[in-house]
């Protein structure tokens, strides 16, 4: 296989004296959709925030696109081509929808390209076009989620981290989000996805990791994980097909 686009080796991250990640090993190859599933508090968000440089790792190495980014400040990591749509959306509430998207393209200077990409986001999520001059904070939860995903696309990342993009959304919107993830991936964006909706996530991914209380306990092809009785018992509750 080719060189990984992203690799974490033995990553430890702590909040104060409490260690949240006890040595994570994880790789994502170019062109993949990889999902990371796990219970509440397992450390999924902490993993993504460690990758993006928003929380400092205690030890271990994170490499992206051939460079060691372990101690790199977040803004430089984004410039290397790694964007994130964070947990809880983190929309800029008093910037308009358009301004939110412009901020997503902060690292770029090609005005024409940015305008074209805004149109592309609007084509994927037409409702954002209707709301373009509205303050981000006045959007509904689902609209904010679309805006968060669209905003993260605006830097044209090589790798897109998505933290629970379907949380709290109506089934149709969830489908829409996964459709967009597929489209982006088909266009060449590599994706690392964190999801509560494990079945949906595994169905749309190439590979998956299971995270339990700060450690990876399973890593395999997505269909293998889907068929695994332990995964089924813990993360794929009966009835939610």
């Amino acid at each position: 296989m080719s060189e990984p686009l992203l690799s974490l080796s033995a990553v430890h991250t702590s909040y104060g004296n409490i260690e949240a990640l006890h040595g994570i090993d994880l790789v994502v190859y170019p062109g993949e959709i990889v999902c990371l599933i796990g219970a509440n508090g397992a450390g999924k968000t902490t993993t993504l925030m460690s990758i993006s440089g928003c929380v400092k790792t205690r030890s271990g190495t994170i490499r992206f696109d051939g460079k060691d980014i372990t101690q790199m400040p977040s803004d430089r990591i984004v410039r290397l081509g790694l964007a994130q749509s964070p947990e809880g959306r983190k929309i800029f509430p008093r910037l308009t929808v358009l301004e939110n998207l412009e901020m997503g393209a902060f690292i770029r200077d090609d005005k024409a390209g940015i305008a074209a990409d805004i149109e592309r986001v609007i084509a994927l999520f037409p409702i954002l076009g209707e709301r373009r001059h509205q303050a981000g904070g006045t959007l509904s939860g689902g609209e904010q989620q679309m805006l968060a995903v669209g905003r993260a696309m605006m830097s044209r990342p090589k790798l897109l981290l998505l933290d629970e993009p379907s949380l709290g959304l109506a089934p149709l919107i969830v489908l829409k989000i996964f459709e967009v993830i597929k489209t982006l991936n088909a266009e060449g964006t590599t994706i690392l996805l964190v999801e509560q909706n494990a079945r949906m996530a595994l169905r749309h991914s190439h590979r998956g990791y299971v995270l339990e209380t700060g450690a990876i306990t399973m890593a395999d092809k997505a269909d293998v994980l889907l068929a695994d009785p332990r995964v089924q018992a813990a993360y794929l509750g009966e009835g939610d097909h």
């Binding site: 803004d75 984004v78 902060f106």
Partner: peptide, 11 residues
């Protein structure tokens, strides 16, 4: 408005 999100935008 949101310093963490600003960081994630490359600011």
């Amino acid at each position: 408005q949101n310093p963490v999100a600003a960081r994630l935008m490359g600011i």
